[in-house]
């Protein structure tokens, strides 16, 4: 009893100092081995987010058996967000909510992901989706994050490389209107390259699009450089 009293005191000290809730104080103290100063520092430096709102949204769509949002839940959720499944914004949602694979959301990343950017309610999330859509109209840093995330998101369990058809579908989804030579790239991949797509190839295509935008004639392209060979072949294809 003596010991727990001592702990309760420490918790109270942290609570009064930081103005945080009891649970936050206890978690921080436990995490840092009951070092009051470090725990206070930690609490003050960690932005406090209220997870309860996002949690309620998750509860609405989850499958009670597995505590996950499954495929049906996902379809309902996406529809309720005002999105269709065939639009790139869905990928931004998947990244924000840390979806491990197509058609699945798990609680922790979902709640924390949305809460961190203020998506506490469905309407708030809808509003955020609209701003996602706006930021996804050009090849910018935010979009690159979504692009890179997509590769891992699409890989199914046990898969190391992305099947070519899947890659082509998602390139079309993500890059239409953003990459002016998309048709050429897709016909190169389907007619000439005909192999599955490695993560490196996926990521480096993005770099190449930026490169090509700067040097449309590709004069400064160096095939002995660090480009993967799929891009080398593509450049050769373009030059023919």
């Amino acid at each position: 009893m003596v010991r727990s009293d001592w702990r309760a005191q420490e918790i109270r000290r942290v609570m009064t100092f930081t103005g945080s809730k009891e649970k936050t104080a206890r978690d921080a103290l436990e995490k840092f081995d009951w070092n009051v100063e470090v725990a206070i520092d930690h609490i003050l430096n960690t932005p406090q987010v209220d997870l309860s709102g996002a949690s309620k949204v998750f509860d609405k769509y989850r499958n009670a058996d597995s505590d996950e949002i499954d495929l049906d839940g996902t379809i309902q959720y996406i529809t309720d967000l005002g999105l269709s499944l065939e639009e790139p914004t869905v990928l931004a949602v998947a990244m924000t909510a840390g979806s491990p694979s197509v058609g699945t959301f798990t609680r922790k990343p979902f709640v924390e992901g949305w809460a961190a950017i203020g998506g506490d309610t469905l309407p708030a999330q809808q509003k955020l989706c609209r701003s996602f859509a706006e930021s996804m109209t050009s090849l910018n840093a935010d979009f690159q994050k979504i692009y890179k995330f997509t590769y891992g998101f699409l890989l199914q369990e046990g898969q190391r490389v992305l099947p070519q058809e899947t890659a082509v579908d998602y390139w079309r989804l993500l890059l239409t209107g953003k990459y002016e030579h998309l048709d050429k790239w897709l016909s190169f991949v389907t007619e000439k390259y005909k192999r599955n797509i490695s993560r490196d190839a996926w990521n480096m295509l993005y770099e190449f699009m930026l490169f090509q935008a700067k040097d449309p004639s590709l004069e400064s392209y160096d095939e002995d450089g660090a480009w993967p060979s799929v891009i080398d072949e593509y450049v050769e294809f373009l030059k023919e």
Binding site: D200, N203, D232
Partner: peptide
């Protein structure tokens, strides 16, 4: 050089190597 590049790519795929996120 193309052969070396192929080998690098296969090592990337097998995750012996990793391409830097910022400096490609």
């Amino acid at each position: 050089i193309p052969t070396i590049k192929h080998c690098i790519e296969s090592l990337l795929e097998r995750e012996y190597l990793r391409r830097d996120d910022n400096d490609t």
